[in-house]
Amino acid sequence: MEVFLSSAIQFGAIFLFGCVGEILTEKAGHLNLGIPGIMCMGAAGGCLGVRLTTMGESPNGVLVVLCGILFAMIFAGALGAVYAFLTVSLRTNQNVTGLVCTIFGAGFTSFFLNDVVCIADVTVASKLSFASLNFFKAQIPGIEALGWFGTIFLGHGPLIYLAIIIAVIVAVVLKRTKVGLNLRAIGENPATADAVGINVTGYKYTAVIIGAAIAGIGGLCYSLGYTSGNDSTVEVTIQIIGWLSIALVIFTMWRPAVAIGGSFVFGALYILYSYIGVASEFKSLLRLIPFGVTILVLIVTSIIGHRETQPPASLGLSYFREER
C-alpha cells in the first residue's frame, strides 16, 4: 500500500508540473494543447543536460539536477515560444497550433532522444541511469526510520518537492501579486486590460513561455525522476500524461493549490491497474479509470457552473485590438 501511495505521489508530481504550467497559460487566455509535445521537449532537453554534465568522472549532483532542469526549461520554453508567437502575434487558431506543437514535439523528442542523445547507447544509458538513481531519486537520509510516513511523504527525489514549491509560488503570484492580477485580467478580458494600460502582448508571451517551461520540467520528472532515462518510447507515455494534465486543470478549477492534491489523485488513478490484482483482460478496463473520472469531473464542474469554477473568459480566443 505504501509503495502504491509513494508511486502515486511520484507520478502525481509529473501531472502537477504539466497542470501548473497549463494553468498559467490558460490564465492568460491561451488554451495550449501543445503541452503534451512541450513536456516531451522538456524530457529531451533534460536528458541532454544530464548527459552533458555527467560526462566527467564524479559529477556534482546539484549541478546535474540544476542543469537538467535548466535544459528542460529551455527546450520546452522554445516550443512554447513558437506557440506563443503563432497564437499571440500571428493570431492563429489556438487549438490547431497546439496540436501541431504536440505532433512536432513528440516526433522531435523521439528522434532527439534516440538518435542524438542516444539513450540506448551503453555509456550514455549508464550515465543517465546513474544520475537518475543517485541524484533525481536521491532521498532524504534517515527516512527509513520513519516507517510508512517516511516512505510515502518523504521518500522522494528533489523534483517532487520542486513541483510542490512551484505550484505554491504560482498560486501566490496569481492570487496575491499585482502581476498575477494583471494576468488574470488579461485572461478574463484582454480589451479591458489593454484599456487600463497593461501590456497584453508582453504578459501573454511571458505566461505562455513560463508555463511551457514549467510543464517541461514535468517531462524531465518522468524521464529521469520516474524511469531511469531508458524509456525509448517516452513520448507516447508523456503525451497521455500531457492530455491528462490539461484535463486536470479543469479538475482543479484553475487553482494551482488545488492541483497539488488533484495531481496526486490522478497519479493514483493512473497507476491503479498495476496494483490491483485482476485478470489480464480487466486491466484494460482499469486503465480507463483516469479518463472516465476526468469526464465526470468535466461534467460536474460544468453543471455546477459557479463563477469561480469557470475558465478565464477569453480562453481560446485571440486578442485583437480594434482599429480606432
Binding site: 505504501e2 509503495v3 502504491f4 508511486s7 507520478f11 520516474y226 524511469t227 524509456d231 518510447t233 517516452v234 507515455t237 497507476i271 491497474y273 498495476s274 496494483y275 489480464s280 483482460e281 486491466k283 484494460s284
Partner: peptide, 20 residues
C-alpha cells in the same frame, strides 16, 4: 501480467508491487 509488450510505467509499477 501487464497486458502489454512494452509499457515502461506498467512494468515498473508491477515490479514495485511484486517487490512490496
Amino acid at each position: 501480467y501487464t497486458s502489454s509488450w512494452y509499457d515502461l510505467q506498467a512494468e515498473n509499477d508491477t515490479a514495485r508491487s511484486l517487490i512490496s
